[in-house]
Amino acid sequence: MAFLAAKGIWKIYADTAEPVEVLRGLDISIENGEAVGIFGASGSGKSTLLHIIGGLDRPTEGSVNAAGFDLGVLSDDEMARFRNREIGFVFQFYHLLPEFTALENVMLPALIGGHARSAAGKMAMDALDAMGLSARRDHRPAMLSGGEQQRVAIARAAVQRPKLILADEPTGNLDRQTGAKVWEYLVDLNKRLGIALIAVTHNRELIDKSMTAYELKDGKLNRLGA
């Protein structure tokens, strides 16, 4: 059985004068540990798709089953628990909390998940270590470069070893070289720890041959290179 199966996903924003159909009956299915790259132009609905898969948003129509949960029937509390345990998010603008150090930012999901502070600290140190950032543990986000901030964000997404990491334009705010390096870290997480990965980007070059590649166009996913 697929780890994630989204079927017939429609997302229509009806609060505008003319309803906008962002996703139009989209289907996607991925297996445990699979890496998926989704390419699409700006405004094609990539972020919306990730939010729906990650339980941050609900589809207008369609069903999402992930890690054995039918997201359509989960309560808000159950959805929050699902996001905390099963999903790791990486955002284009990192979204680190400015008042917290790198270590504290990475500890957050573990603390929210109910881990003791000491255990959360150890998990966060391991995750930062894997990103090559243990020396930067006490630095606040403002003292880190863009690439470093995104690596801290990746460590935060991976700290509880979720089953799936959703990366929304993780390199979109970085220069080409730094972006490529950050992408490598993400792919490495997938390969080394077997965490499934869905990464969306508007840079087609980043999606390598080891990933299942899709293009999001007209509200539907088209398999690339199939």
Partner: peptide
């Protein structure tokens, strides 16, 4: 708001 959204994305429950 973005930080609140991040907290929710990380799994913080509404009542917390």
């Amino acid at each position: 708001l973005p930080e609140i959204a991040v907290f929710k994305a990380l799994g913080l429950k509404d009542r917390d």
